[in-house]
Design a protein around this nucleic acid. Structure first.
Length: 178
DNA sequence: TAGAGGATTGAT
DNA sequence: TCAATCCTCTAC
């Protein structure tokens, strides 16, 4: 996935936090794991039908925010869930948000990284070149052999579609989710 | 307007 | 392995 190795940063109340994306999951309107399955548009997932380059943030289980990058073009509701990143900026601020004493495992999961970065539903639909939230091409080349593809996590309800190898991770990274 | 369920996490 | 927890969607 092209997003691996790119930087994701936020600036909340003047505090810069962010890191390098090391784990993603792809979602397409063509499969059941996606909220926009069969191109069903609701108030919640409406931003997925907009042009790519914006954030799709939504609350899951009433507790966790999940951050997606909308990759859609031409009305196809496609998005990429950011599951983990390697902290490079504002590590101390993120530790404070996570109440962690060490800069480890503070972003190793989709719900945790949004909390570490201070991402909330107010970022839903935000363009990814905004002042408070943006993607950055760090010029880091991720070798194809350094990327692993596997089945996605947490969507068993999607049946056969849950086994699609659409989860991409950077091999050997210590920041991956479990 | 009410009821059910979910792209997770952390504690038991 | 299971509960926490609340927003969203669907049905009545």
């Amino acid at each position: 996935m092209d997003l691996l190795g790119k930087g994701l940063f936020t600036r909340i109340n003047g505090t810069l936090t962010g890191g390098v994306i090391v784990e993603t999951e792809a979602y397409s309107w063509k499969e059941r794991g996606c909220h926009a399955y069969m191109n069903k548009m609701t108030k919640r997932n409406a931003v997925m039908f907009q042009d790519g380059g914006i954030a799709y943030v939504y609350l899951c289980y009433g507790i966790h925010h999940l951050f997606n990058v909308v990759t859609n073009t031409g009305g196809k509701a496609d998005a990429v869930l950011i599951r983990a990143l390697e902290p490079t900026a504002g590590v101390e601020a993120m530790q404070h948000r996570m109440n962690a004493s060490k800069p480890v495992r503070i972003t190793s999961g989709p719900g945790k990284l949004t909390r570490a970065l201070g991402i909330g539903r107010e970022h839903n639909g935000t363009k990814l070149d905004s002042d408070g939230l943006w993607l950055s091409d760090l010029g880091v080349k991720i070798q194809k052999k350094g990327v692993q593809a596997g089945p996605r996590i947490g969507i068993d309800y999607a049946g056969a579609d849950a086994r699609l190898p659409w989860r991409f991770t950077v091999t050997g990274s210590q920041w991956l989710s479990k």
